[in-house]
Simulated assay, not measured.
Amino acid sequence: MLTVWPNSNMTWKPENYCGITTFAAPRNMVWTPDIGIKESIKTEFGTRESPYVLLLSEGSTLSSDVLSLTTACKMDLFRFPFDTQICSITLQSTVYSTEEVQLDVATDKASINLESKEIFQAQGEWELIDINVTKANMSKWIEVNQLIYQITIKRRPLLYVINIIIPVFFFLVLDVASFFIDTNASDIVTFKMTLLLSISVMLLILNDTLPSTADKIPLIGIYCSVIFCLIAISMVESILVNFLKVKGAEKRSVETTSTVNGQDDSVIDQQNPPDSVKDQNEESYTLNRLKQILTECRVATRRKQLSWIRLARIINLTFLVLYIITIIVFMSVLWKLWYYP
């Protein structure tokens, strides 16, 4: 940080002193302003002041300090990782009032932004967007002049998109694809349970990434939680469909057993000849009535079986359509809030 202030008592003509225009003097021999940073968090190696200041022949004093600054900045993580943050650095004097010390910028805003972006070339998580400088006065015990730097930075979201957003979306796509798997329903439930466990791991990673002091739930948290709930509801629907299909299969098993028993009885009756023709006619009439009753029960059972299976198919198809519509609406609204504020 370069600080320049006028010093009319230290002026000279360079031609009278062998053309010397600058002179390095010990800091403790020259008055220096006590400029501090309001948002600074004190650290052991926060500031390294140079032991010298530079005196200029026209009556100015220049001080160059190296700052390792740690500041407190309130962040809004609602649109994480597509968020833009504005942090302030406030320079002010702790002792001198506005009548004694006035702070001003040595260069214009365009030069500040150009030089800052040239320095801010590290390919890290943040990208420097803009630096705006304003002046203000603060009145507490005395009126103090302030110089406020508002720094606008934007997060680079590629890392979080690749590691969290895309994998969770693929889990949702796999869940939709599981409706078209022609296999046992228990295997589908196991597959969806694996998806739920995978999203749970993503939620744990997200919990370690985001601070727990946010005022609002970030959209990425809503994104993962809603997808988790959708897959859980889908798994419950698969369990219900499986239950209906199993119930229909049980009805079919009962029908097959009844048919076999009826056939066995007829065979046994044919192997035992009647005592008289009258008894034979009565038994034949009874057997025909029993066969008619069994046929009617079989038809009724088959209809009931088909009704359970048909109900399972209707529920599955209806849920799939509503599921896809819900996903499309949810993703559209979320993307609008996320990327287009």
Rank of each mutant, 00 (worst) to 15 (best):
M1G: 05
T3H: 06
V4I: 11
T11S: 09
W12K: 01
I20L: 14
T21L: 06
T22R: 02
F23D: 05
M29W: 09
T32Q: 12
G36W: 04
I37Y: 07
K38N: 13
T47E: 12
E49K: 13
S50Q: 07
Y52N: 09
V53H: 00
L54H: 04
S60W: 08
S60C: 06
L62A: 09
S64N: 12
V66K: 13
S68R: 10
T71A: 14
A72P: 00
L77T: 05
R79K: 12
R79Y: 10
I89W: 01
I89T: 04
T98F: 09
T98P: 00
T98I: 08
Q102C: 09
D104L: 07
A110L: 14
A110D: 14
I112C: 03
E115P: 03
E118N: 15
E118F: 15
Q121K: 15
L128M: 02
K135Y: 02
M138F: 08
W141M: 07
I142E: 02
E143R: 12
L147C: 06
Y149L: 08
Y160F: 08
V161L: 10
V161S: 01
I162T: 10
N163F: 05
I164K: 00
V168P: 01
V168C: 07
V173H: 10
V173T: 12
D175K: 05
V176Y: 05
A177K: 15
F180C: 01
D187I: 06
I188S: 03
I188R: 12
M193S: 15
L195K: 05
I199C: 05
L203F: 03
I205C: 06
D208G: 13
T213E: 11
A214G: 15
K216C: 11
P218E: 09
I220L: 06
S225Q: 15
S225I: 11
V226K: 01
I233S: 13
I233K: 12
E237G: 03
S238H: 08
K245P: 01
K247T: 11
K247E: 13
G248P: 02
A249V: 02
E250T: 12
E255L: 07
D265V: 04
D265K: 12
I268Q: 14
D269G: 07
N272V: 10
P273N: 07
P273S: 11
D275F: 13
S276N: 14
K278A: 14
D279G: 06
D279N: 13
Q280T: 05
E282N: 12
S284Y: 06
T286L: 15
Q292K: 11
L294I: 14
L294Q: 15
T295K: 09
C297D: 07
T301W: 02
R302L: 05
K304V: 06
L306G: 08
S307Y: 10
S307W: 10
I309D: 01
L311G: 01
I315N: 05
I315C: 03
I325Q: 04
T326P: 00
I328D: 02
I328Q: 03
F330E: 02
S332T: 15
P341V: 04
